[in-house]
């Protein structure tokens, strides 16, 4: 069998098992949706009223909705590392690693599962956005673009999280580092405010932050009148590149979890 086909079959096996686990635990999925609801319903509503952040012709709530979608993707994907450390402590990782499966397929399978989970999460955020009367674009192409962005974004941040987990290896250290990493990622992106409003140093950070490109792709497609700073092709190109890089790094470190 071709190694390529083998790779995808192995990744599919891992993703399948992950998705089964997710389906059994919908409460977890729903509880992760609480945060975006609060951001949109409270923060978004208030800032729309005060018009504190200039967003051109867009209502602030509309401007913010794609940012909150991206944020919810980031925050839930970043928990993947905890799950990996948990699996390490239980010896599940060891069992996967003694199979002849490609190490990269094991990591890729987890990323796919995270991507699928992200899509469910996006559906919840859409629901909240509808309730708050955000002006959503419903043409097929924009909706598919958002889905693709959500999927790739989830892959990126879950693999990033796995990568960190492979380095720190314990839950306590991961919890500390998880906080330290997600907050800057979130605030040094265009999720809550246009990049142009940031001071120069923050703009520089935002330019190398994958979340910025995810927010850009989503903002250009999700809402009526939304525009992206970067061309769609640029955003997706950079995101795929970042994912490929993280996949390579994480696959290199993943076997170290058994040590």
């Amino acid at each position: 069998m071709s190694p390529f086909l083998e790779f995808f079959r192995e990744a599919a096996a891992v993703a399948d098992a992950e998705v089964r686990k997710l389906r059994r635990d919908p409460t977890e999925l729903l509880s992760r949706a609480v945060q975006p609801v609060l951001w949109l319903a409270v923060f978004g509503q208030v800032f729309s009223q005060v018009r504190g952040i200039p967003t051109g012709d867009l209502r602030y709530l509309d401007f913010m909705a794609p940012g909150i979608l991206a944020q919810s993707i980031l925050f839930s994907a970043i928990f993947y590392g905890i799950a990996i450390i948990w699996e390490r402590d239980l010896g599940i990782v060891h069992k996967l690693l003694v199979t002849p499966a490609h190490r990269s397929a094991l990591v890729f399978g987890k990323a796919i599962a995270a991507g699928l989970r992200g899509l469910v999460q996006a559906a919840v955020v859409y629901l909240v956005a509808i309730l708050l009367q955000v002006h959503i674009r419903w043409e097929p192409l924009p909706v598919l673009t958002v889905a693709a962005g959500v999927f790739v974004g989830s892959c990126i941040f879950s693999t990033f999280s796995l990568f960190i987990a492979c380095i720190v290896k314990t839950r306590e250290r991961f919890m500390g580092i998880g906080q330290v990493l997600t907050m800057p990622l979130f605030f040094a992106s265009s999720a809550l405010y246009p990049v142009q409003l940031m001071p120069g140093w923050l703009q520089a950070l935002a330019a190398v932050n994958p979340l910025t490109y995810l927010v850009g792709a989503l903002r250009g497609s999700m809402i009526v009148g939304g525009t992206s700073v970067h061309a769609l092709g640029t955003s997706f190109g950079i995101m795929l590149l970042v994912f490929a890089l993280l996949l390579a790094l994480a696959s290199k470190l993943y076997p170290g979890l058994a040590r």
Binding site: R9, A13, A17, R20, G91, K95, T99, A101
Partner: peptide, 26 residues
């Protein structure tokens, strides 16, 4: 390989645990 601690995946069924291993062994 059977590790020192019980390490079948508790969140999966017996069949699912077996199927996962089988698939990863091609």
């Amino acid at each position: 390989y059977v590790p020192q601690l019980l390490s079948a995946d508790g969140a999966l069924t017996a069949t699912e645990n077996l199927v996962l291993s089988a698939r990863l062994h091609g």
